[in-house]
Design a protein around this nucleic acid. Structure first.
Lengths: 140, 140
DNA sequence: ATCGTTGCAAATAGTTTGCAACTAA
DNA sequence: TTAGTTGCAAACTATTTGCAACGAT
């Protein structure tokens, strides 16, 4: 369960920019996109560029330190929690929460033989719903 | 099970462009993107513009005549089969096939109470795997 | 010295939009 | 004659890339 502190590649330097990006993604529960991370990191590193943020979000994910989310959005979102889990998106406000659908992995493995002859390696699941706040606000 | 021929809105005209786009999406099993549809439709309507294709893919989906896919791709894909079903993408060649994971809906409903207080309305599932052709081609 | 990394700016890809002309009821 | 639709082109958004300068080993 320990969060990796060290990257996989030997020649992957954890520069101040990368550390700040990693911390920004880890410290929030909001599943941010690149623009959010950019604004957040600029507080401590005002000269960082958006290109560097994009570059390093991808590289950090490649190193296994963060995860790219599979939301149905046209912008990429990122998650500092790298254990396998899924997400639910509020269709009203867009807020994202983590969900663990334990029974799902089994259900999917059980259905694998129906998968048109494909060998099934994994899945991406994203639930849609209404968050507690929007329910309270009278959204149906 | 009948495929709708008529759109939901009264003032939605099934113009030649729209009919051609609809037929193109329905006639193929390849789950095409806008560029593919554009090229296909240009055979019969050489002057159609890409903007019209984009516009009408969205409108046809809004009318319930086609579906937008929830693949993990940065480009939108479309499906003429509008009954609820999911998809599996080959991680080698990108080919998309339909899958029906019957047990899934129940499994997800059963897990709904764990969904961080959200009211669960639906889900998007996309399996990843290796297609028969790539398996035969020696891909692991 | 080397080689990964950065900031900047330009480029790219996919998609959307404004608008005048067109078209069917 | 009106309201929806089209083709065109420009605009837009998210992201990627080329490159010279920088910096840690």
């Amino acid at each position: 369960m320990a969060v990796p502190e060290r990257a996989n590649s030997t020649d992957f330097r954890l520069t101040p920019q990368r550390r700040a990006i990693l911390e920004a993604v880890r410290e929030t529960a909001c599943h941010p996109d690149a623009a959010w991370v950019y604004e957040r990191v600029r507080r401590s590193l005002p000269n960082i560029s958006l290109g560097t943020v994009y570059r390093n979000l991808g590289l950090l994910a490649q190193e296994g330190l963060i995860r790219e989310l599979a939301l149905d959005d046209q912008v990429s979102h990122w998650d500092g929690w790298i254990e396998p889990h899924d997400h639910i998106v509020c269709i009203h406000c867009g807020k994202v929460a983590n969900v663990e659908v334990a029974a799902l992995s089994d259900a999917i493995d059980g259905e694998a033989e129906h998968a048109a002859g494909y060998r099934v390696l994994g899945y991406r699941l994203c639930l849609q719903g209404i968050c507690p706040e929007c329910q309270a606000g009278g959204k149906s």
